[in-house]
């Protein structure tokens, strides 16, 4: 944690691990796409994407090593992003619930 002064320099190994994790999750996303999980399709894809974003924010964007105020800022952005997704998906997920012919 470096509140002030010089920026934190993470060891190269951390970056390589993060890169490996991101690649593995990408492979997982592609792999999962071959199975039809019905309503779970979006949920699984978005969950994996969120985990990836979380890793990127923490390590590549150095939030893990930053001051509290940066945590707050990043968290606000992330929470708002989740809200946007949640309410948008509230539309897509429930469109078929009414016994009307599917719209489009």
């Amino acid at each position: 944690m470096s509140e002030h002064g010089q920026p934190h320099i993470a060891p190269l190994k951390t970056y390589l691990n993060v890169f490996a994790a991101l690649m593995a999750l990408t492979v997982l996303t592609v792999g999962v796409a071959y199975f039809d999980l019905g309503a779970m399709n979006i949920l699984v894809a978005v969950t994996i994407a969120c985990i990836k974003a979380y890793i990127v924010i923490l390590y590549f964007m150095h939030v893990k090593y930053s001051a509290r105020i940066i945590w707050l800022t990043a968290a606000a952005g992330f929470i708002w992003f989740v809200l946007m997704f949640a309410l948008t998906l509230a539309d897509y997920a429930t469109r078929g619930w009414l016994p009307f012919p599917e719209a489009w």
Binding site: W80, L83, L87, A90, D91, Y92, A93, T94, R95, W97, L98, A103, W104
Partner: peptide, 20 residues
């Protein structure tokens, strides 16, 4: 930030999302 769907009541948006 939680009200934007009121622009989309006739856009094929789900009725349930519309209600929220």
């Amino acid at each position: 930030f939680f009200v934007w769907g009121h622009h989309m009541f006739v856009s094929s948006q789900s009725m349930y999302a519309g209600m929220i």
